[in-house]
Nucleic acid binder design. Structure first.
Lengths: 201, 201
DNA sequence: CCTGGGGCATGACAAATGTCAGCGTGAAGG
DNA sequence: CCTTCACGCTGACATTTGTCATGCCCCAGG
């Protein structure tokens, strides 16, 4: 019997996935969570063999949760589940010690299969995605550039960002400019979109 | 036996929801689709009692599909399923003749319940969401303002938009300006975000 | 010890953006 | 018939944004 927990914010898909996995003879869902921190707590309590974690969750993403779970329960394998197959996500997931990386538009049966293979010590990664992640190279943005770009994502003006990050407006402009350069885009908005698509934020 | 079809782009959650619904004694899933147009085609072929349609799908959204299905199969009830409980979505769904509107973060059991209630002639709408949709009022943007704002969403410059929509740059600026005014925001990006959050695009 | 990079700041300049006041059309409604 | 509103355009103006050069501090690597 493989004991697993599942973290996913949308209750309806969480419920559906839980029943789906519950139908498998060799899998037992011993816990559920709706956020990253909750997942860590549940993992602590239930000590599962495998943790399925969604990346996109409000209040702490799945990758951060993965790191913590790996630290607290080194024996627990982590499967990262995501809507978006972004290269940067994959990279970060691997660095966080994940054993598998699944995108939600692969068929449903893959999920149980991945759980079994991971339990058996294998790693499960989509080959095309792996290639994309490698060819894309690592995140070229410096820490501060990331901060500023992230702060710009919601349509904030330079003045807003400067205030929020305690920087001068000129500095914010400089960071944005260099981020635009590194993403090889034409303006803030494109830079933000590109960085998000690469999973750099 | 209630015959239903399900349209949802993410294969994994589609599969999970299908098995979930398949477990119900009185429900039979007779078709699946991964896009709006495909949903219409499947509905035509299978003539289901109820069609479950996701709003967010690439290549034709669920609400447009709902309209067409209602036209082709007046006896078929439509349930709209969505990740985001945006007031504008609800409004458009109702105008398209939907019988139910569910957000994916309500519990999984709601789904089968909604199918049954809809089949029985009831309408299923989250009360809080209905209130929000009413209090928010209708979409204040004119057709062209919507077009221009939508075209601006990807970070396009004024010149890009003008070219794409065959307008003068000044005209584009004017539409953007009035959209910014109507959304009571400070710039393009905020206007786009606000309009999207309201389901106006 | 020197160099390169990240971090932070100026100031100056060019380009893009946002605002306003107009002006004309045509379609819809009182 | 007159008004209103969406649509499309112009020109002028102020503000914001993006770019570039330059300077400083600190730290790590060769």
């Amino acid at each position: 019997m493989i004991r697993i927990i599942l973290a996913e914010d949308q209750a309806m898909v969480r419920g559906a996935l839980v029943t789906l996995l519950g139908l498998e003879d060799d899998i037992e869902v011993v816990g559920e969570a709706a956020s990253g921190p909750e997942a860590v707590a549940v993992a602590r309590k239930t000590e599962p063999d495998v943790a399925l974690l969604d990346v996109e969750m409000p209040g702490g993403d799945g990758i951060t949760a993965a790191e913590e779970i790996r630290r607290v329960l080194p024996g627990c394998r982590v499967v990262i589940l995501t809507t978006f197959g972004r290269p940067g996500y994959l990279r970060r997931a691997m660095e966080a010690g994940a054993a598998a990386f699944l995108v939600k538009d692969s068929p449903a049966r893959e999920l149980a299969a991945a759980v079994r293979r991971v339990r058996a010590g294998e790693r499960v990664i989509d080959p095309g995605l792996a290639a994309a992640a490698l060819s894309a190279g690592p995140n070229p943005l410096s820490g501060r550039e990331r901060d500023v770009l992230a702060a710009a994502a919601d349509g904030s003006t330079i003045a807003d960002i400067a205030l929020r990050l305690h920087l001068s407006e000129g500095t914010v402009r400089n960071y944005l400019s260099s981020a635009i350069g590194k993403t090889r885009t034409r303006n803030r908005v494109e830079a933000v979109r590109h960085a998000q698509a690469q999973g750099w934020l």
